[in-house]
Simulated scan of single mutants.
Amino acid sequence: MFSEHVQSTRAEQKRRTTTSIIEAAARLFQEQGFQGTTVRQIAAESSVSVGAVMAAGDKESLLSMVYDEAIAARVPAPPTARSVTSAVDYLSRYFDPFLELFTENEELARAYFRALTRGRPENAALGELRTVTEHNLTTAMVNTGTPETRARLGAQVMFTSYLGELMLLAAGSTAHQQTAARIRHTAEFVTAHEQ
């Protein structure tokens, strides 16, 4: 019983420390950029040792955690049958909060995408985002009359298109408005094709 309480307390302390480190990293990345921020500065900002920071993750991993939390906070609520008036509108607007996040700081967005392309285990949040997004998009299309099998395929196309457009945006190959317009065109294509 005592051992379980100690383990629970340690786990909670570790969670609080990790949260403090991620919050410090987020502040420093915003203020100084990814390249301008060091692990030592993150440690000082979060009042922990460099070893504690490295136990939470290297700088790239911390950036991934910062973005993963920001993305998770912006995932739109799943649609209800009454809330979806147009599948095209819902599908195209679903990604607006993410596009805004990635245009807030282009240098950090590029660093995040470099981290994603490395395919490290800590990038599992991308898979979770895909699952949630595809579920929400499928639900929206089903609620507007698309058969479920076709809606699932449409949701997969939308998510894949979004990732591609986001990478182009992060690379500076396109502007925010162009990205949003192309996502809307994909939504129009998917919903017209699905019907």
Rank of each mutant, 00 (worst) to 15 (best):
H5R: 12
H5F: 06
Q7I: 04
Q13P: 09
R15P: 03
R16K: 15
T17N: 12
T18Y: 08
T19E: 15
S20I: 05
I22K: 03
A24I: 08
A25Q: 04
A26L: 03
R27Q: 12
R27Y: 09
E31S: 15
Q32C: 12
G36P: 12
Q41H: 13
A43I: 10
A44E: 14
S46V: 07
S49L: 08
G51P: 02
G57A: 07
G57M: 06
S64F: 06
D68S: 10
E69V: 06
E69D: 14
A73C: 06
P76I: 00
P76T: 00
P78V: 02
T80L: 01
A81W: 06
T85L: 13
A87K: 03
R93A: 05
D96K: 00
F98V: 00
L101P: 00
E104V: 02
E106G: 13
F113S: 03
R114D: 15
L116A: 14
T117L: 08
A125Q: 12
L126S: 07
L129F: 04
T131R: 10
T133H: 03
N136H: 10
T138V: 07
T139H: 05
A140K: 03
V142R: 04
G145E: 02
P147E: 07
E148F: 05
T149E: 09
T149I: 05
R150F: 03
R152Q: 07
G154S: 06
Q156H: 09
V157K: 08
F159W: 09
T160G: 11
Y162T: 02
Y162K: 00
M167C: 10
L169E: 01
H176Q: 12
Q177W: 00
Q178S: 08
Q178D: 15
A180C: 12
F189A: 11
F189C: 08
V190S: 01
H193C: 14
H193L: 12
H193F: 14
H193S: 15
